[in-house]
């Protein structure tokens, strides 16, 4: 899959995560979280693994986390990918 346009998914509600994707020249993940000190690495890891699973490269991921569990992080990222990508 190739990200062809900026996309977003999620909300700023508690237990959710707001994810924005932008096509770029390299893959970069920026996470803002109320639990970053404890779970920052884990959130980035879920994002990284999901990008790999969907074979998405060269994307800037901006995530604003409000305490989302892994299934929510994955779901919001998958939705953003599908909204911004084309199959090729």
């Amino acid at each position: 899959m190739q990200l062809v346009k900026p996309s977003k998914a999620g909300t700023y509600e508690s237990n959710d995560i707001y994810i924005m994707l932008f096509p770029g020249n390299e893959t970069k993940i920026e996470v803002e979280s109320i639990v970053y000190e404890t779970y920052g690495d884990k959130i980035e890891n879920v994002i990284f693994k999901t990008l790999n699973e969907y074979k998405i490269e060269n994307v800037l991921v901006k995530a604003i986390d409000k305490g989302a569990l892994d299934f929510t992080i994955r779901a919001r990222l998958i939705t953003a990918i599908k909204r911004g990508a084309t199959n090729d």
């Binding site: 998914a9 999620g10 892994d70 299934f71 929510t72 994955r74 779901a75 919001r76 939705t79 599908k82």
Partner: peptide, 15 residues
Amino acid sequence: KDSARTLVTELLKSV
């Protein structure tokens, strides 16, 4: 609708 469908699917797969 797309977002909810994916969220529910991921929930049911992992929780």
